[in-house]
Simulated scan of single mutants.
Amino acid sequence: MGLLTEILLLPAAPVRGTAWVLRQVVDVAEREYYDPAVVQRELAGLVAALEAGEIDEAEFDRREDALLARLDARRTP
């Protein structure tokens, strides 16, 4: 039965392969996006930008909230 199913689904193999690759890319991107080390580096850069006068306090608060939300999203299932 398995061989027959594989033969019948053979024309769909490129689509299944593409879907698998896309899932892998999304998984890696999400791991990197929510990685605490990456978020901490971005927070440090944000603090440096604030201290250098490149951004104002309101922009800092908005971006900091977004980064902290990423950290919280990673911790909660």
Score class of each variant (00 low, 15 high):
Asp65Met: 07
Glu57Ile: 03
Ala13Glu: 12
Asp65Asn: 03
Tyr34Ala: 00
Ile55Arg: 04
Asp56Arg: 08
Thr5Lys: 01
Leu67Trp: 04
Leu8Val: 11
Ile55Leu: 04
Ala19Gly: 03
Leu9Phe: 04
Ala12Phe: 08
Arg31His: 14
Leu3Val: 08
Val38Ser: 00
Glu59Gly: 02
Ala66His: 14
Asp65His: 06
Glu59Tyr: 07
Ala48Gln: 15
Arg41Asn: 07
Met1Ser: 10
Val47Gln: 06
Val15Ala: 12
Glu59Arg: 15
Arg75Asp: 12
Thr5Ala: 04
Val28Gly: 01
Gln40Lys: 07
Glu59Asn: 12
Leu22Thr: 00
Leu8Phe: 03
Arg62Met: 09
Ala29Ser: 13
Trp20Val: 12
Asp61Ser: 12
Glu54Met: 07
Glu42Thr: 03
Leu50Arg: 14
Glu59Leu: 11
Asp35Arg: 08
Ala73Cys: 08
Leu8Thr: 01
Arg75Ile: 08
Glu30Phe: 11
Glu30Val: 15
Ala29Met: 15
Leu10Val: 07
Glu54Ala: 13
Val26Gln: 11
Arg63Phe: 06
Leu67Gln: 08
Asp35Ala: 01
Pro77Gln: 15
Glu51Asp: 15
Phe60Lys: 05
Asp56Gly: 11
Pro14Glu: 05
Ala69Arg: 09
Glu42Met: 04
Leu68Cys: 03
Gln24Leu: 03
Val21Asn: 04
Tyr33Gly: 06
Gly2Lys: 08
Glu64Asp: 11
Val38Asp: 01
Glu54Leu: 12
Thr5Ser: 05
Pro14Lys: 11
Ile55Phe: 02
Asp72Arg: 03
Ala48Lys: 14
Ala73Ser: 13
Val39Cys: 03
Gly2Asp: 11
Glu57Cys: 02
Ala49Pro: 09
Leu46Glu: 08
Leu46Ser: 11
Glu57His: 06
Pro14Arg: 01
Tyr33Glu: 10
Ala19Asp: 07
Asp61Gln: 15
Ala29Leu: 09
Phe60Glu: 02
Gly2Ala: 06
Val39Leu: 14
Val15Asp: 06
Leu10Asn: 09
Ala44Gly: 15
Ala29Cys: 10
Leu68Asp: 02
Pro77Asp: 12
Thr5Leu: 09
Val28Arg: 11
Arg74Cys: 11
Asp61Lys: 04
Arg74Ser: 15
Ala52Cys: 05
Arg16Lys: 08
Ile55Ser: 02
Asp35Cys: 01
Ala48Ser: 13
Ala44Asn: 15
Arg74Pro: 05
Glu64Ser: 15
Glu30Ser: 15
Gln40Ala: 13
Ile7Phe: 14
Glu32Ala: 12
Glu6His: 05
Glu32Trp: 06
Gly2Asn: 10
Val39Ala: 03
Arg62Thr: 13
Gly17Trp: 11
Asp72Cys: 00
Leu68His: 02
Ala29Tyr: 10
Ala52Gln: 11
Arg23Ala: 03
Leu22Lys: 05
Ala66Thr: 08
Ala49Thr: 07
Glu59Thr: 14
Val38His: 00
Glu59Trp: 07
Asp72Val: 04
